[in-house]
Amino acid sequence: MARQWLSRELETVATWWRIERTDGVALGFTSHDRDLYVSGIVLRAAPGMVPSAVRLTGGLDADSADITGALTHDAISKADLDSGRYDGARIAMGLVDWESLETLQIYAGTIGSVGREGAGFSAQLRSAKTALEREIVPRTAPTCRAEFCAGGCTLSAGRFTHEGRLASVSDDRSAVTVTAQIEANLLEFGTLRWVDGPEAGMTRRIEAVSGDVLMLDRPVEAGATPGARLILREGCDHTLETCGARFGNAANFQGEPFLPGNDLLTRYPSPAA
Rank of each mutant, 00 (worst) to 15 (best):
R3C: 03
Q4A: 14
W5G: 05
L10N: 04
A14K: 00
A14N: 03
W17F: 14
R18N: 03
R18G: 01
R18F: 02
I19S: 04
I19H: 10
I19E: 10
R21P: 09
T22N: 08
A26I: 14
L27N: 12
R34P: 01
L36S: 09
V38N: 01
G40Q: 10
I41A: 12
I41R: 12
V42N: 04
L43C: 01
A45L: 08
A45C: 08
M49P: 02
V50R: 12
R55G: 09
L56D: 10
G58N: 05
G59R: 03
D61W: 10
A62D: 14
D66S: 13
T68C: 05
L71F: 09
H73N: 08
H73R: 01
K78N: 04
D80K: 08
D80S: 11
R85G: 08
Y86R: 10
G88E: 06
G88M: 09
I91N: 12
I91L: 15
L95S: 00
W98R: 00
W98K: 00
S100Q: 01
E102V: 04
T103V: 08
L104C: 06
L104H: 10
Q105A: 08
I106W: 06
A108T: 15
I111K: 11
I111C: 02
S113T: 15
G115C: 06
E117N: 15
G118T: 02
A119F: 13
G120M: 02
G120D: 07
F121N: 13
S127W: 02
K129E: 11
A131G: 07
R139A: 05
R139Y: 04
A141M: 05
A141V: 07
P142Y: 12
P142W: 13
P142C: 03
E147G: 05
G151T: 14
G152Q: 10
C153S: 14
T154K: 03
T154I: 05
T161I: 02
G164L: 14
S168Q: 12
S168K: 13
S168E: 14
V169E: 04
T177S: 14
V178I: 15
T179Q: 15
I182L: 13
A184W: 03
N185G: 12
N185Y: 15
E188L: 01
G190T: 09
T191P: 00
L192N: 10
R193I: 13
R193P: 04
D196F: 09
G197Y: 07
G197S: 09
P198K: 01
A200G: 08
M202G: 02
I206A: 07
A208G: 03
V209T: 11
G211C: 10
D212C: 05
D212H: 07
V213K: 15
L214W: 15
M215T: 15
L216M: 08
L216I: 07
D217G: 02
R218W: 13
P219H: 02
T225S: 11
T225R: 14
T225E: 15
P226G: 05
I231F: 02
E234A: 14
G235S: 10
G235L: 04
D237N: 15
H238T: 08
T239C: 07
T239G: 06
T239D: 06
G244K: 08
A245N: 12
F247Q: 08
G248K: 03
G248T: 05
A250V: 08
A250F: 05
A251W: 13
A251V: 15
A251F: 13
Q254V: 05
Q254C: 11
L265G: 03
L265I: 05
R267F: 00
S270F: 09
A273S: 10
